[in-house]
Design a protein around this nucleic acid. Structure first.
Lengths: 104, 104
DNA sequence: CGAACGGTTCGATGGTTGTCGAACTATTTG
DNA sequence: CAAATAGTTCGACAACCATCGAACCGTTCG
């Protein structure tokens, strides 16, 4: 029943968001989460050939940067893009990134 | 009379642009160039306490990522954000980043 | 209960990044 | 020409990053 903490939106810095997005793996994960709905982590890794530990590292990086939240759901974890909060704090950023992200 | 090469806009990748922006120094430099007009490099460093070599490194990083171009002008160099090209290739990206960038 | 499942954490490792000073290049100016 | 100016390049270095396998943890299921 442990919770995985994401930072408060007020503490999220643009440069950290950009950092988190500046990696092809994480960019692709974020693309899959574009609609803002929660997805099982496993589903976000389709097409990505990563070890479990590397995948976990990227999920943690996204969460700690404030881009996603994690919802524990049984023994699986759902991950969700924090669209509304991010759109309010950084207007237009996610739409433009997602629009320009290469197709998977 | 050497020219400093920037990549063709077609070769500029989103992830490289994001990586170039994902640094506080470069973010601030880009903020100063927001209007798309050329500025002497020296003028972009106001408020930044960097050695000459570090400044040069960041300018090169921005140029090689495709964000800026360098115009040699006597013994000074002007640097210019490639606004039009970038706006066409990554619509809305620069505006949103510049809008959310912390004030200098 | 015990095994399988979905994930995290740890430690190690090689590669990249940001920083600097020193040496260098090219241009202007005294 | 000689000195000053504006900037680059090089080598070094510490810090950080992406990656992995192994061990671990909590949940579900036979």
């Amino acid at each position: 029943m442990n919770e995985y903490p994401s930072p408060d939106i007020d503490d999220v810095e643009l440069v950290d968001v950009l950092r988190a997005l500046a990696d092809p793996v994480r960019l692709q994960i974020v693309s899959m989460l574009a609609d803002g709905k929660p997805y099982p982590k496993g589903d976000c890794l389709m097409g990505l050939d990563l070890s479990k530990s590397t995948a976990s590292y990227h999920f943690r990086t996204l969460r700690e940067a404030g881009l996603t939240r994690t919802i524990v759901h049984g023994r699986t974890h759902d991950i969700q893009l924090r669209r509304d909060e991010l759109d309010e704090k950084f207007p237009g950023l996610l739409p433009s990134v997602l629009r320009s992200a290469p197709p998977s």
